[in-house]
Computed example of a mutant assay.
Amino acid sequence: MRFDSRKSHRVRMDHKQPVNLMGADGTWRRTCVLLDVSDTGAKIEVEGTLDVLQAREFFMLLSSTGLAYRRCELVWIDGTMAGIHFIRPGTRKGPAKAKNELATQKTRGR
């Protein structure tokens, strides 16, 4: 895998950067190491079982108090390594957002 062929510039960590993953509902937490990071995502090495990542959506806690965090979704898993994508506000089309867009389109058509 070529490290420099990505759309977003990635920064590789020279030293272990510990972070935590936490379920969106707060029911689970995993310690991991940040291997590289970009504006849009990161590569991590997870300690412990990866079965909880099947939830697909979780938080990456960047501080021990949880005040600095990113909302994430799972992209891939390979052994203990995982690729995650950062979810930005307004970039995902959930059911409520899709419904609002449909209503807006109908009122414009009147």
Score class of each variant (00 low, 15 high):
residue 2 R to T: 15
residue 3 F to Y: 15
residue 3 F to I: 15
residue 5 S to V: 15
residue 6 R to L: 09
residue 6 R to M: 11
residue 7 K to A: 10
residue 7 K to R: 15
residue 10 R to G: 06
residue 10 R to T: 07
residue 11 V to M: 08
residue 17 Q to S: 09
residue 17 Q to Y: 06
residue 18 P to K: 05
residue 19 V to H: 01
residue 19 V to D: 02
residue 20 N to L: 14
residue 21 L to R: 05
residue 21 L to P: 04
residue 24 A to S: 14
residue 26 G to N: 07
residue 29 R to P: 02
residue 30 R to C: 09
residue 31 T to P: 08
residue 31 T to M: 05
residue 35 L to V: 03
residue 36 D to E: 07
residue 37 V to P: 01
residue 37 V to Q: 04
residue 38 S to K: 08
residue 38 S to R: 04
residue 38 S to F: 07
residue 39 D to L: 12
residue 39 D to P: 01
residue 40 T to D: 12
residue 41 G to E: 03
residue 42 A to H: 03
residue 42 A to R: 00
residue 42 A to E: 01
residue 43 K to W: 01
residue 43 K to C: 01
residue 44 I to D: 02
residue 46 V to S: 01
residue 46 V to W: 03
residue 48 G to Q: 00
residue 50 L to Y: 00
residue 50 L to M: 14
residue 52 V to S: 06
residue 54 Q to F: 11
residue 55 A to K: 09
residue 55 A to Q: 10
residue 57 E to T: 12
residue 57 E to R: 15
residue 57 E to S: 07
residue 57 E to N: 05
residue 58 F to R: 04
residue 58 F to Y: 08
residue 58 F to G: 07
residue 59 F to E: 05
residue 60 M to A: 09
residue 61 L to R: 08
residue 62 L to C: 10
residue 62 L to F: 14
residue 62 L to H: 08
residue 62 L to W: 12
residue 62 L to T: 04
residue 62 L to A: 06
residue 63 S to I: 09
residue 63 S to Y: 04
residue 63 S to V: 03
residue 65 T to E: 09
residue 67 L to I: 03
residue 68 A to C: 04
residue 69 Y to N: 02
residue 70 R to G: 00
residue 73 E to D: 06
residue 75 V to Y: 02
residue 76 W to A: 01
residue 77 I to Q: 13
residue 77 I to A: 05
residue 78 D to F: 03
residue 78 D to S: 13
residue 80 T to K: 12
residue 80 T to E: 07
residue 80 T to D: 14
residue 81 M to V: 02
residue 88 R to I: 02
residue 88 R to D: 04
residue 89 P to H: 00
residue 89 P to G: 00
residue 90 G to W: 04
residue 90 G to L: 04
residue 91 T to Q: 06
residue 92 R to V: 09
residue 93 K to V: 05
residue 93 K to M: 14
residue 94 G to K: 01
residue 97 K to E: 11
residue 98 A to R: 13
residue 99 K to I: 11
residue 101 E to F: 06
residue 101 E to C: 08
residue 102 L to F: 12
residue 102 L to W: 13
residue 102 L to D: 15
residue 105 Q to A: 14
residue 106 K to V: 15
residue 107 T to F: 10
residue 108 R to D: 10
residue 109 G to D: 10
residue 110 R to Y: 11
residue 110 R to T: 11
